[in-house]
Design a binder for these strands. Sequence first.
DNA 1: GCTCAAGTAAACAAATCTGTTTACCCATTT
DNA 2: AAATGGGTAAACAGATTTGTTTACTTGAGC
Lengths: 204, 204
Amino acid sequence: MNNELEVLPENIPKRMQIIQAAYKLFTENGFYATGVDLIMRQAGVSKRTMYVYFPTKNDLIVAVLELYRSNYEQSLNGLLTSSDLNNREKILAIFDDARNWFGDDQHHGCLAVNAMGEFAGKDSAIETACRIFKTWELGVFRELVKDIPVDAPDELAFKLLLLLEGMGAVAHVMGQPCPIDIAQMVNDLIDSHRSANLTDGGGI
Amino acid sequence: MNNELEVLPENIPKRMQIIQAAYKLFTENGFYATGVDLIMRQAGVSKRTMYVYFPTKNDLIVAVLELYRSNYEQSLNGLLTSSDLNNREKILAIFDDARNWFGDDQHHGCLAVNAMGEFAGKDSAIETACRIFKTWELGVFRELVKDIPVDAPDELAFKLLLLLEGMGAVAHVMGQPCPIDIAQMVNDLIDSHRSANLTDGGGI
DNA sequence: GCTCAAGTAAACAAATCTGTTTACCCATTT
DNA sequence: AAATGGGTAAACAGATTTGTTTACTTGAGC
């Protein structure tokens, strides 16, 4: 009786269904600890289909890491493009967003860091996916820093990455958000790269 | 013929043998990915004995995390107690040491962070062991910062922890040491906590 | 010399893991 | 109406997992 034209709740292609189910499970339970049987059940897909799209579990892990990056990219786009913030304010917005995010009970640490912990030295495709993620993050900061008049912009971008990374890891292990004024710290960091002989870009 | 009184290479009690073998394997291959059979073989101990000392694998993981902390504590003692550095210099020494350490191919990220990635929400004893490690690290910085005349010393200590953590994670994922001047960054961080009305402690 | 604690080696249990294979279903297209 | 592509469900294979148990060894102290 339920074969009247169902309005498919979401016509996400199977491949995406699988990746999203796996993303959730890997994030919450880790990679090794999550079996493919559970993934396929959560995705509502047969095991046969899973292995058509992903010949090995590790291939699926790589795809999940790509989704992780893409999700964060979209989230940042939503956070930054619509507003009329200058680049310093955008950087501050990223950290403020991360602070809230990391304070959530649902925070499970950076997926790329976790993946590296489980697969470093064991699967080079996964290692590469992790590096791509961090390289991309660094690139985001580089782009933002580029238009702020500072000395050694690339080094500043790297320092910002260090800080973001530290926040995520510490919050995950300690189980609580940063008890410090991150905005102040980021501002100090940026200011420490502004020597006296730089023309002031209007308080940027 | 080889049953003449062997000079036992090291008479480390069995328990310690097991923990040390497990430490090495967990560090290099991850926790889930390391089976107890391999641990027992590397430790040169029967499985029976292993399960006498550690009723479950997770009990062994907790013990390994304690050894990890203890090892780092001893390493820091060797680094700091013998020398006549002031506290700022000691902090710089910690970061310099870490920078070298993280640049090594043998660096596998912080074991507590890796453990948290695999066992968060699944084993509270392991979670606790991870938190103890980070809390101890924070305590080290708190002690060192205490004698430097700064504003908000506890916040400064936390910032130092963030930075150390970030260095470790980024180096692990990127597979290369920090390309920035860490000493400069640490000095800037400390200086940013020294307001004008603090009496100068002699350049500490 | 006997006893006892501590350990070894290996078989075993029961579950779980990734990955394969078989048989079937069903909607679309030609 | 037949063929085909994409999917399901479930059995299966074979390796591996944690943990238990059994039978034996060995060394030290009384």
